[in-house]
Design a protein around this nucleic acid. Structure first.
Length: 460
RNA sequence: GGCCCCAUCGUCUAGCGGUUAGGACACCGCCCUUUCACGGCGGUGACGGGGGUUCGAGUCCCCCUGGGGUCGCCA
């Protein structure tokens, strides 16, 4: 059975890079009918926030990622870790180190000055004497002194780290709390995790965790280190790059499946396919196909995908989504026409809401450029004639309104543009938007008359 | 700086020794059209550089260059 996990530290919202690794893990587990575990890495008690955990779960809910079992909190498993620390101590595979932080800092500084790699010098590794008083020791694990640590990364290939690059890293702080590299290995082993898919900033942690696996005799999982996501400039993604928080995408009017589709294609591909339903992702995804190089985030691709998914959304769903942007269409009798017209031109739900507003509400002002184009020739005459015919009929559907426009065009022997432009500005205040017959059908005969009359009054 | 990883159009990518180097986004044209979009058609545009190996290299090897990661009692 395949067991994967997403193991964030609760230090803030879930960002899109995190969501992508979560997605990869989730897909792999779901594809194989396995388990996907959500585990909160909160061993550093001073940096936790429940808020952050809630934010992560909220994001999961929004995009539709589910996890198996309860959320695991490492802070609630300290007794387990303590047993293993004691075990290693008893077996002589770990030891107390009485070096203070100050001493350590001094040592590091000195090494740096000499141009050496800062590393603990293992001075307490085989310490037999009397420990110094007043120092709460940390526990360090005995890392191999020589040789190579080798592992096969499912994405990067064979990784070789020389033992000399590692030191006896701390597995328990002086306040007795266990550290990350230690608990990760234990939890992954105890929870039966078979495939670890994580950011490649963890690549260097892997040999450390391997040391723990080795010391405890645990079975080693398969590792996949996925390259990071870069910003649009090809630099490391940071808070300054705008939308990092997954929930921000909801607020901007993106559909969860668009975000997921976008993220799955960042670093992974399946031939020339661009559009993937969740089902297709599950069917086709394989972590071994993930690229080795980092990929840059690009918003216009996301927008394109979002537009695609909006186009293919049911109007019923759109009505619901629009509520978040203060557009309430349930009881609007022409909502189908409105939604169908807007679907093709909105890149986000937010944009769709804005466009809807522009149609539903009488224009407050008229675009300058649009006016210049509209107030030409005998526009007044044309609109007046149109108004006359509009009042004399009972139009409901777009075709009905179209017929009226057509009549005017025929009678005055003009092109559609001659009436189209002034009428469009009168109705919408600008030159773009859905077809005029549709617009009028949506707002109705009376509102159309009202807007044209107002326009006629305003511009003599 | 040490160690490690990476390198195809602007961007996401296909390519797994023999291709006119393909697709997508973006961009630019044309068509459709009462406008703006949508859609359709077409176009510009890439193997970072240098050495090898080979009959043949985007594909394999080495070096350089350029990016990135990491060197915590953070995760």
């Amino acid at each position: 059975m395949v067991v994967t996990r997403f193991a964030p530290s609760p230090t803030g919202y879930l960002h899109i890079g995190g969501l992508r690794t979560a997605l990869f893990n989730w897909l792999w587990a779901r594809k194989n009918g396995g388990k996907f575990i959500l585990r909160i890495e909160d061993t550093d008690l001073s940096r936790n926030s429940e808020e952050a955990t809630r934010a992560i779960i909220e994001s999961f809910d929004w995009v539709g990622l589910d996890y198996d079992g309860e959320v695991a909190y490492q802070s609630k498993r300290f007794d387990i870790y303590k047993r293993y620390i004691q075990k290693l101590l008893d077996e002589g595979k770990a030891y107390y180190c009485y070096m203070s932080k100050e001493e350590l800092d001094a040592l590091r500084e000195e090494q740096q000055k000499r141009g050496e790699r800062p590393r603990y010098d293992r001075r307490y590794r085989d310490f037999k004497g009397i420990p110094p008083k007043g120092v709460e020791p940390v526990v360090r694990i005995k890392a191999p002194l020589h040789g190579d640590i080798i592992f096969e990364d499912g994405i990067k290939g064979t990784i070789v780290i020389r033992a000399e690059e590692l030191d006896d890293f701390i597995i328990a702080r002086s306040d007795k709390t266990p550290t990350y590299n230690f608990v990760v290995a234990i939890d992954d082993a105890l929870m039966g995790v078979t495939d670890v898919i994580r950011g490649d900033d963890h690549l260097y942690n892997t040999p450390k965790q391997l040391i723990v696996y080795e010391a405890l005799g645990f079975k080693v999982p398969k590792f996949y280190h996925v390259p990071m996501i870069l910003n649009e400039q090809g630099k490391k993604l940071s808070k300054r790059d705008g939308a990092m928080d997954v929930m921000e995408y909801k607020r901007m009017g993106y559909l969860p499946e668009a975000l997921l589709n976008f993220l799955v294609r960042l670093g992974w591909s399946y031939g020339d396919q661009e559009i993937f339903t969740i089902e297709e992702m599950k069917e086709l995804f394989d972590p071994k196909d993930i690229n080795k190089s980092a990929s840059a985030y690009n918003l216009s691709k996301l927008e394109w995908l979002n537009a695609h998914y909006i186009k293919n959304s049911s109007n019923e769903r759109l009505v619901n989504l629009l509520k978040d942007f203060n557009i309430y269409l349930e009881s609007h009798d022409k909502k189908e026409i409105l939604l169908d017209a807007l679907k093709d031109r909105a890149k986000t739900i937010k944009e769709m809401a804005e466009l809807a507003k522009e149609i539903l509400e009488e224009p407050e002002n008229y675009d300058e450029k649009a006016l210049k184009k509209a107030l030409k020739g005998d526009w007044r005459e044309i609109l007046t004639l149109f108004l006359e015919k509009l009042k004399a009929s009972e139009p409901h559907l777009p075709v009905d309104f179209h017929k009226i426009i057509e009549d005017v065009v025929k009678e005055k022997e003009i092109g559609f543009g001659k009436i189209g432009q002034p009428l469009r500005v009168a109705l919408l205040g600008k030159l773009s938007g859905p077809g005029l017959d549709e617009v009028m059908a949506i707002i109705g005969k009376e509102e159309s008359i009202k807007r044209v009359e107002k326009f006629l009054r305003e511009f003599k």
